[in-house]
Design a protein around this nucleic acid. Structure first.
Length: 266
DNA sequence: CCGGTTCCATCAACACAACC
DNA sequence: GGTTGTGTTGATGGAACCGG
C-alpha cells in the first residue's frame, strides 16, 4: 500500500538515475530546452509540454533500448525524471506513478511513458505491415517501400518533409518510403556532413523514432542485435565518428550544457 | 479580404483481450 | 502474477468553408 517514502525514492534514484541523463536528453532539442527552462523557472509545465516531454523521453528510450524496454528500464526513466525535477512528483504512492506504474492485480502497466511507448509501438507495427493497411486513398506504393516509387515522387516527399512536421503519421510514412534513398544520398560523394544531412532531412531529429526506423528499413536483420548491444555499439559509433572528424559537431548540437554531471554507468 | 465557424485527421489515454 | 497488443473515445489543432 504506502510502500514508498521519499527515502525510498532516493534509494531507487541513486540506483537507477545514472542510466538516464534526463537533462541531456531534453537539451538536445529546442522544445526540450524550453521544457527544462519552464521546469526550472516556474516549477511546472503545461500539458502540451508534458506530452512533448514524454515524446522526447520515449523517443530516447526507443533509440537506446529498442521497442520493448524492460520494466526496470522504464521505471528507471520515470524515477530519473522525478528525481531530476521534483516538481514532477505526483500524488501516487511511488511519486512517479503518473509517469510509469507497473501492472498490478491483472491490470496492465500504465503511466504517460508506458502509454506513449505502447502507442508508438502500435504505429510502428502498422507502418511495418503495409499490406494490412491497404485502404489508403492514394494508390501509392503500399507494399515494398521505395523500390517502385518513382524518383520524382521521392524528391517530392523529401521536399514536403522539409517544411512539414505534421501529421506525424504522414512524416513517418514518407520517412519510411525514402529510407533507402536517404541512405544512398548520405553515403554519396564520400558521405555528407551532419548539418547537410539535417538540412535535407530535418525530421530525422525532431520526429521521434526516425533513426531507428531507417535502420530497421535498411538493416532489418541486424536491428535486434544493435538494440541488444547498444551500449558497446554506441561507443564504437562515437569512436568512428570522431575518427571521421564528425563528432565535434554532434556534441555542439546535441549537448550544449555538458558540464558537471558526468554520468558513468555502473 | 478577413474573422468566425464547422469539419476532419491525429493522437493521447483508457479498457479489455491475449499472451507468457 | 505480469506484459504486450489492439480497439475505442475524447481532446486538440489545422484546413476548408462561409457570411459580412
Amino acid at each position: 500500500m504506502e510502500e514508498s517514502t521519499s527515502s525510498n525514492l532516493l534509494t531507487e534514484t541513486l540506483n537507477l538515475q545514472p542510466s538516464f541523463a534526463i537533462r541531456q536528453i531534453l537539451q538536445g532539442t529546442t522544445r526540450g530546452k524550453e521544457i527544462v527552462q519552464s521546469l526550472e523557472e516556474k516549477r511546472s509545465i503545461i500539458s502540451k509540454q508534458r506530452k512533448q516531454l514524454v515524446r522526447l523521453l520515449v523517443s530516447h528510450l526507443l533509440e537506446t533500448n529498442g521497442e520493448t524496454p524492460s520494466t526496470d528500464t522504464k521505471k528507471a526513466l520515470a524515477v530519473a525524471l522525478v528525481y531530476e525535477f521534483p516538481c514532477l512528483l505526483d500524488g501516487t504512492g511511488s511519486g512517479y506513478g503518473a509517469w510509469y506504474t507497473t501492472g498490478r492485480n491483472h491490470k496492465p502497466a500504465t503511466g504517460f511513458l508506458e502509454e506513449r511507448l505502447r502507442n508508438a509501438r502500435k504505429r510502428m507495427r502498422i507502418l511495418k505491415r503495409p499490406r494490412h493497411q491497404e485502404q489508403q486513398k492514394e494508390p501509392t506504393v503500399p507494399s515494398t517501400p521505395e523500390y517502385d516509387v518513382p524518383p520524382e515522387k521521392l524528391l517530392e516527399m523529401v521536399e514536403w518533409m522539409k517544411v512539414n512536421r505534421y501529421p506525424v503519421s504522414q512524416v513517418e510514412d514518407y520517412m519510411n518510403q525514402t529510407a533507402l534513398h536517404r541512405g544512398k544520398w548520405i553515403r554519396s560523394n564520400g558521405s555528407k556532413s551532419l548539418p547537410e544531412i539535417l538540412t535535407e532531412f530535418p525530421r530525422l531529429l525532431d520526429n521521434p523514432g526516425m533513426i531507428s526506423q531507417d535502420f530497421q528499413q535498411l538493416h532489418p536483420e541486424a536491428v535486434r542485435e544493435l538494440f541488444q548491444n547498444w551500449a558497446t555499439m554506441s561507443d564504437q559509433i562515437l569512436t568512428y565518428a570522431q575518427r571521421e572528424g564528425k563528432l565535434p559537431l554532434v556534441f555542439d548540437d546535441m549537448t550544449p550544457g555538458l558540464e558537471e554531471k558526468s554520468t558513468d554507468p555502473p
